[in-house]
Design a protein around this nucleic acid. Structure first.
Lengths: 325, 325
DNA sequence: ATGAAAGCGCTAACAC
DNA sequence: GTGTTAGCGCTTTCAT
């Protein structure tokens, strides 16, 4: 691997000049040309490690998400990546797997690798950002809000839960259940609150039997749906608290020959790769990519030195209603 | 941020001793204790950048994939990650978006960041690994083979194509189309060869009208399926060259009220998050996670200095047949 | 505008 | 077993 010394020697200049050429500071155009030619000839690639060590920062941003196999998060990752790479930053994707330990390891890596900043969808409300924030690096929370005074981009979860539920009410369903993620995750709780809101608003009883907190994964949706169907008085409709729960629930319904809209289904979040008719299921789309884009922009502003007070941006969701039955 | 010098001073030892404690070389237990105590007190985190610069390597492996939104690749990423983190390595996920330029940027980053090795599903057969291989870093190819003499883990693509097709033949379908990815991507071409094999084996004519090369994405599957249905003599079954093509094709079929098995469908790769009855579609499962696991193990062996000749591992696929109609 | 030189934090010879 | 020291490749004062 060629270094700036090799390039400097070949170009007949000092290493400092080579560095300047690659950092856009003023260099006479002849020397700059010579340096570029030499660099090309030697296939010189600047050593980022050395640069980071010297500068105490690197043009890398960390993106920590709880489930890399969830299309909601990969869609968000795309948004982050597009903005970041546009600005010359690369994105390191870290999968915390919803485990606080893994999450904290990745956060340590972010510090140790001198990453410029971090965008994180926390694994739980126990997640600690103390270490990374102590280094002064900017951190932006996405999807899930935190107790820290940091920028965050979240969804209108309560409104989404209410909109989904309302849609099923309007379609004429009577007993509407709700399957959410883990109760201790705020987004799950808020969406469930929205479900309650909509039921109350329509003067419906809120039966605790019909409220299920599960996992934000397909198997969670499956298990909860099975339980609901086994109830003495099963529901005639269900709100799925996220995309994967929706998939699991619909799978179970199909197996029981209750494919929607036989049993009404509304999903908070897009149904990934669905092969279902879009008319059969109500979808409250969450703008995941947009969330990523917004978070990345905020982070870049902070990296560039913006010091205004922490902002929280709440993204509106879009209702894609099924046709009433 | 505390450095080893701070720790050394507090513990009353030399920086080298601190380094030794953190690298597991022999240090008297009293001093080791003192160092650990000092490190804890100062919240010392070893600076990976400095370590990498010095060691000319870092415990990070790069994983370059062409589509982060494709569950096939994220499933593979999980496999890689599980093995890597077990061995103390972290994984940096890079999305080339099937673009050679992005791919080569990420490869440059891998070099510049001193990553220990790279696992790559190449964007195309034009992909150049010259740069990264010149550095002596191990590279393992996954999913798509390369012209380089490197380890690779690939699927039995031709066999998968044949198995999928054979299943439709056995189920009694007469005109079986094939929708594959871009013809210049080997995996796409090989799977199509399998389709030809199976047709020939059954003494069926191979009509070029029924062979479509598209993209490996949902929209590609949709477009090709629409074209096939618009044919004067449309097919009565179709083989989808990958998971996303399968999703697109089934979407179009559902819209035309031809939901499988009305029109037969076989998919090479798992149908992600499907809500379809598993009986309706033949799936030739590709062991993506296993591919990731295998590739990661091979890479780690190479990183540890294994110098045996390049190996190619071909993974068997599993047939999950639909019930014959 | 350019060069000389110090130093980012760590590791690995090399001495003792 | 432990300390001293050079140096990984780069950026950035400070002179010139």
């Amino acid at each position: 691997m060629a270094t700036i010394y090799d390039v400097a020697q070949l170009a007949g200049v000092s290493p400092a000049t080579v560095s300047r050429v690659f950092n856009g500071t003023s260099v006479s155009s002849e020397k700059a040309e010579a340096v570029r030619a030499a660099a090309k000839q030697l296939k010189f690639v600047p050593n980022r490690t050395a640069r980071s060590l010297r500068r105490q920062s690197s043009e890398v941003i960390g993106l920590v998400i709880p489930d890399i196999e969830n299309p909601y998060f990969t869609e968000m990752a795309r948004g982050v990546e597009d903005v970041a790479s546009e600005a010359g930053y690369s994105v390191v994707l870290c999968n915390s797997d919803s485990e606080i330990e893994k999450e904290s390891t990745y956060l340590d890596i972010a510090i140790a690798e001198h990453m410029s900043g971090v965008i994180i969808a926390t694994a739980s409300d126990e997640s600690s950002l103390d270490g990374i924030l102590a280094t002064g690096r900017p951190v932006v929370a996405v999807d899930r809000d935190t107790d820290y005074e940091i920028d965050s981009v979240i969804m209108a979860n309560r409104a989404a839960g209410a909109a989904a539920t309302r849609e099923l009410i309007d379609a004429g369903y009577r007993r509407i259940a709700y399957i959410g993620g883990p109760a201790q995750i705020d987004t799950a709780a808020e969406r469930a609150d929205g479900w309650r809101d909509a039921l109350a608003e329509a003067d419906r009883a809120v039966e605790s039997d019909l409220l299920r907190f599960s996992t934000f994964r397909v198997d969670g949706g499956r298990a909860a749906m099975e339980e609901l169907l086994a109830l003495p008085e099963p529901p005639d409709a269900v709100v799925a608290g996220n995309n994967l729960i929706g998939v699991g629930a619909i799978q179970v319904l199909s197996e029981h020959d209750l494919t929607p809209p036989k049993l009404g289904v509304a999903v908070i979040g897009s149904l990934p790769f669905t092969t279902l008719s879009p008319k059969a299921v109500t979808v409250v789309r969450l703008p995941a990519r947009h969330m990523g884009v917004t978070a990345a922009r905020m982070l870049l502003e902070r990296i560039r030195g913006d010091v205004q007070p922490a902002r929280t941006i709440v993204l509106r969701n879009e209702l894609q209603a099924a046709t009433p039955r």
